[in-house]
């Protein structure tokens, strides 16, 4: 049975979000018709909390909550799925200069997978780093659809995927409750646990899905050039 997961979200545990996990789940429940998600993955910035437990909320809302992390590397931001004690001991997630190649290889060796996120974003995305550094080895998938991307960023991600043959994921990168689930990933297989998710990301079939509402065209005004002369 296919599974749809938002693979990239931030709750109030991240310093730049005020979204409670329960508010995310309630929002999805209320908007199920437009957001047919089976679950979300919390990818808090630069941290891993093994003790946070969302089982009661999962039961209450019948929506899966999995945990991962978003870390910062010398090739930009990356999502780490399948974090375990070995991985958490091996890497300091608070380090904003983690060595990407080492992270990818070591996380894979220890049972997880690293997925570079918003690769088309300036400064923090893989695309720009590849312009001046060698491509990374052993990258399996990158985030093709990011709900927080500016115009052109997701297109650059697609270009990267086409060039290197990466698999493609989607995630909302939500920091606000009302943005959860707008981009997600549809897996062909049943995904019920983080182990399932890691297995499917490595070997399974999946694709990004876009639930962003179509917005009406807004008339673009022509900017008027102005220069102020001070006397």
């Amino acid at each position: 049975m296919p599974t749809i997961l938002d693979l990239h979200s931030h709750s109030e545990a991240s310093e730049d979000s005020r979204a409670p996990v329960e508010a995310y789940l309630n929002w999805i429940k209320l908007r199920r018709q437009h957001l047919p998600l089976d679950g979300i993955v919390l990818t808090e910035h630069r941290q891993w909390n093994p003790d946070s437990d969302y089982r009661a909320l999962e039961d209450k809302y019948q929506i899966m909550v999995l945990k991962a992390a978003e870390v910062e590397t010398d090739y930009g931001h990356m999502l780490v799925f399948g974090v375990n004690d070995d991985i958490a001991s091996r890497f300091d997630f608070a380090n904003v200069y983690l060595p990407a190649q080492e992270l990818i290889d070591e996380v894979a060796r220890m049972g997880g997978i690293v997925v570079p996120c918003h690769p088309g974003r300036p400064n923090v995305g893989l695309f720009e780093h590849y312009q001046r550094k060698p491509a990374l080895d052993n990258v399996i998938a990158v985030e093709r659809l990011n709900g927080g991307s500016r115009k052109g960023e997701n297109e650059r991600s697609a270009e990267l995927i086409a060039k290197f043959g990466y698999k493609a994921t989607g995630g909302s990168d939500s920091h606000l409750v009302s943005l959860i689930g707008l981009c997600a990933t549809r897996f062909e297989a049943d995904v019920k646990t983080i182990e399932d998710l890691v297995r499917e990301l490595k070997t399974g079939n999946y694709e990004p899905v876009d639930f962003r509402p179509k917005r009406p065209q807004v008339r673009r005004a022509e900017p008027v050039e102005e220069s102020e002369h001070r006397g």
């Binding site: 929002w27 409750v177 673009r220 900017p223």
Partner: peptide, 15 residues
């Protein structure tokens, strides 16, 4: 945010 453009302000009650 640059002036001389049309902007849209929006909100949602979330909780």
């Amino acid at each position: 945010v640059q002036p001389d453009h049309t902007i849209s302000l929006q909100g949602f009650v979330t909780h």
